[in-house]
C-alpha cells in the first residue's frame, strides 16, 4: 500500500513539473497560438455570447417579472435551455454556417454559448423582479410612481443582487463551455486541450484546463465583488 502511495505521489509530481515547464516555456506565450492570444479569443467569445444572451433574456425577464404575464415561459425556456446540449447545438449549426459561408467554428460556438447563457440570466432576473414585496410596490404606486418608475427605482435595484448572480452563473458556465469551440476548428483555450489530446501531450492538456478554470474562477470572484458592492449600496 505504501508503494502505491509513493507511485501516485511521484506521478502527481511528474505531471506538475511538466505543467510547470510548459508554463515556463516562452514559446507557449508568443504568437497567435500562445497563451495571451488564446486567452483573448476565449474571453472575447465568452463575453460576446453572454452579451447577446443578456440582450435577449434581460428585457424579457424584466417584462415578465414586472407585468406578471406569461410567467410559464420562464420555467419552460429555462428547462429547454438546460436540456439542449451545447455539443449538439455546435454540431447542428456547423453545416448551416458553412452553407451560409460564415466560416467554420465561430458562429456555431457563439450560438451554443448564447443559448447556454439564457437560462441563468432569465430565471434569476425574473425571480428577483417578481419577488419584490407587493406592499412596497403598492406604496410606490400610491406615491404616484408610474410602472416604468416602479421598475427602474424599485424593482431593478432590489433585484440587483440576484440579477448579478444570474450573470455570474451564466459567465462561469459559458467560459467553461467555450472550450468546445476548439472542437469545431475555432480558437480559445480549448485548443490546448484538443491539440494536446491529439498528440498525447498531457502537460498541454493540463495547462489548458488550468487556464480555463483560472479564467472561470476569476470571473466568479470579480462578480462576487460586484454583487457585494450592490448589496452594500442597498443596505445603506
Amino acid at each position: 500500500m505504501g508503494e502505491t502511495q509513493v507511485t501516485w505521489f511521484g506521478f502527481l509530481m511528474e505531471v506538475l513539473s511538466a505543467v510547470f515547464e510548459w508554463f515556463r516555456d516562452p514559446a507557449n506565450w508568443s504568437g497567435s497560438t500562445g497563451v495571451p492570444a488564446r486567452m483573448f479569443e476565449h474571453i472575447y467569445i465568452s463575453f460576446l455570447s453572454v452579451g447577446i444572451s443578456a440582450a435577449v433574456a434581460l428585457p424579457a425577464a424584466l417584462y415578465i417579472g414586472h407585468t406578471k404575464r406569461a410567467e410559464f415561459l420562464v420555467t419552460s425556456i429555462a428547462n429547454l435551455g438546460r436540456a439542449i446540449p451545447s455539443f449538439a447545438i455546435l454540431a447542428i449549426m456547423l453545416p448551416i454556417t458553412i452553407r451560409m459561408r460564415l466560416g467554420l467554428g465561430f458562429w456555431p460556438t457563439v450560438i451554443a454559448l448564447f443559448l447556454l447563457g439564457i437560462p441563468p440570466i432569465l430565471t434569476n432576473t425574473y425571480v428577483g423582479i417578481q419577488g419584490v414585496d407587493a406592499d412596497t410596490i403598492e406604496a410606490a404606486r400610491g406615491m404616484g410612481m408610474t410602472g416604468g418608475q416602479v421598475l427602474r427605482k424599485l424593482e431593478i435595484p432590489l433585484a440587483a443582487p440576484l440579477i448579478v448572480a444570474g450573470f455570474r452563473t451564466a459567465l462561469v458556465q459559458v467560459i467553461a463551455t467555450a472550450t468546445l469551440a476548439a472542437l469545431v476548428a475555432w480558437g480559445g483555450l480549448g485548443r490546448f486541450i484538443i491539440d494536446g489530446f491529439a498528440v498525447r501531450d498531457e502537460a498541454r492538456i493540463a495547462a489548458g484546463a488550468i487556464l480555463v478554470a483560472a479564467l472561470a474562477i476569476a470571473a466568479e470572484l470579480s462578480f462576487g465583488l460586484v454583487q457585494r458592492l450592490f448589496a452594500v449600496r442597498l443596505h445603506r
Partner: peptide, 18 residues
C-alpha cells in the same frame, strides 16, 4: 465543488483517458 464545476469537461476527459 465549485472548483470541480469550472474544470471544462473536455479537459477532464482528455486528461483521464491515459
Amino acid at each position: 465543488t465549485g472548483l470541480l464545476y469550472t474544470i471544462p469537461s473536455l479537459a477532464l476527459f482528455a486528461f483521464l483517458v491515459p
